Amino acid sequence: MQCLRIVSWNIRKAVGLDWRRKPERVLRVLKRLEPDIVLLQESDKRLPPRPPALPLDLVRRAGWTAIDADPDTPSIGHHGNAILLRPDITLQAMIALDLPGLEPRGAVLATVTRPGMSLTLGGLHLGLRQRDRLAQMAHVLDAAHQFDGPIVLGGDLNEWRKTKSLVPPGSNWTEIAPGPSFHASAPRFSLDRFVINEAVTIDGHGVVSRQSAERASDHLPIWMDIELSDQTKPRNGF
Rank of each mutant, 00 (worst) to 15 (best):
V15A: 11
V152K: 07
M224V: 15
G179L: 04
R131S: 09
M137S: 15
L166T: 11
L121E: 01
R188Q: 04
Q146W: 07
L228H: 15
R105H: 11
I176K: 07
D57Q: 08
L157F: 13
G123C: 12
V15R: 13
T73A: 14
R86M: 12
A177E: 01
R131M: 05
V59P: 04
D230E: 06
R61T: 07
L85R: 10
M117Y: 01
G122A: 13
L33Y: 03
H79K: 12
N10S: 07
S43H: 02
A53E: 03
P49M: 01
G16N: 06
K164M: 06
R215I: 00
I176H: 04
H145S: 15
L85F: 11
R86N: 10
V152E: 02
L102F: 14
G127H: 10
T232Q: 08
R235P: 01
P169Y: 11
R50Q: 13
D192V: 03
R21C: 09
L166N: 14
I95N: 09
R32I: 01
A69E: 08
E175H: 11
S75V: 10
L153Y: 02
R20G: 04
P221V: 02
R21K: 12
H205K: 10
V195S: 09
D225G: 09
R105S: 07
R25H: 03
T120M: 08
L56H: 11
R61C: 03
P51D: 07
L39Y: 03
R105G: 05
T73L: 12
G149H: 10
A138E: 15
G170I: 13
G206S: 05
F189V: 11
G123R: 03
V167W: 14
I6D: 00
H78G: 12
R60P: 02
Q92V: 11
I202R: 13
Q146P: 01
L58M: 14
F189Y: 07
V29C: 04
I89M: 06
